[in-house]
Design a protein around this nucleic acid. Structure first.
Lengths: 195, 195
DNA sequence: GCTTTCAGATGACACTGTCAACTGACTCAA
DNA sequence: TTGAGTCAGTTGACAGTGTCATCTGAAAGC
């Protein structure tokens, strides 16, 4: 019934899921090959049949996360019930929510692994291209690149500051990640009206 | 000549410097207590006389970096030859430059260690308060908190995206970290003229 | 001068990522 | 059907790691 290739693919998926679970619940330190193997129902050596080393496994987890976010961005862009500005805002909040609810995964997504530094950047492509299209709908092709890059940078920074606890400092007057996002979106959406 | 307390303080400083050097040159993986000790001229157990564990040593390195940046922000604010907008821009670039030239240290500064999550946030206080004052000079007390938080978030995000190599992607049209910073500063400085 | 204190050295331990060798079930041509 | 070949997974081993208990010796204080 289950061929060898199928069961191997299932193990690979189980390893990825186990690594993602451990990362979410216990941070990067909790992701040991032994723990990943145990949770996936195999032993410590098994991951080496699917990934050259631990780093590659982690990168694969990050790629999976970018793909998931890409799907959400695609669905968001296609949603007929939302205005361009709403799509833009929701896209940014979607990114911030990853940082909010899966902070360790979020860090992994923006990490720069020594082995293949471009693998994660490639995986982020689809997600960012979808968002770029949303921004272009609002501000036009000409300024879209610059504004989209700025928006994604800012959103990732907002998420980072929130994750490190620095945004909660009283000197910011209790401002939330949503407040900052809205401020930014308003500035850019307002700018587009002037053009 | 050198009392026991003095030599202990010198060792502590040597350990911090060694850890910072190793972090810069070889990343977090290169910072082992044995390597830090060797570079500081002591053995692997010595750090435990100055820091409860490895994580505390790393946090101390991060705190030192925030203090250095705080000094630079202070000097920047006091510089009479710069306009408020220039001070704001230079402050953001100073933060981005840390991410650019010391990416591993930069990540450490925004990390959220399991042990004492607030230690780094406290260390970031002075740096951010100085910057907040610069922003207040430009946009007024009322909106300063929100804009300062947004600017710092965005700058840290820009640095993060640049460090992960994602900003270099051709889809952004070759935009640089400085371009994004200037765009942001212009939007907020322009906004202040409307008020 | 004697005791106390404490920075640093050292031995040991559990745990990690990684590799070489091994096992056994699946695959597929003859 | 049978045989060799493939390959996912196991196991033993090893070097390197953070950490602790213990020891040492010199400075500090009475």
């Amino acid at each position: 019934m289950t061929s060898r290739a199928e069961s191997a693919a299932a193990t690979r998926r189980a390893l990825l899921d186990a690594a993602a679970d451990l990362l979410d619940s216990g941070g990067l330190d909790a992701v040991t090959l032994r723990a990943v193997g145990a949770r996936a129902g195999v032993t410590r050596g098994a991951p080496y049949r699917h990934f050259p080393d631990k780093e590659s496994l982690l990168i694969a987890v990050g790629i999976q996360a970018w793909d998931t976010l890409g799907d959400r961005m695609h669905a968001l862009r296609a949603d007929p019930g939302l205005s361009p500005a709403e799509k833009m805002r929701n896209g940014l909040i979607a990114l911030i929510d990853v940082g909010r609810f899966q902070p360790h995964l979020y860090k992994l997504m923006f990490s720069n692994p020594p082995g293949d530094p471009t693998a994660l950047a490639r995986a982020a492509q689809r997600s960012q291209t979808e968002f770029l299209a949303v921004v272009a709908d609002l501000v036009g092709e000409q300024h879209a690149r610059r504004y989209a890059a700025l928006l994604i940078s800012s959103a990732s920074g907002i998420a980072g500051l929130e994750a490190s606890g620095q945004l909660a400092d009283p000197k910011w007057g209790g401002v939330s990640a949503e407040d900052l996002t809205d401020t930014l979106v308003d500035m850019i959406a307002g700018k587009s009206r002037h053009a």
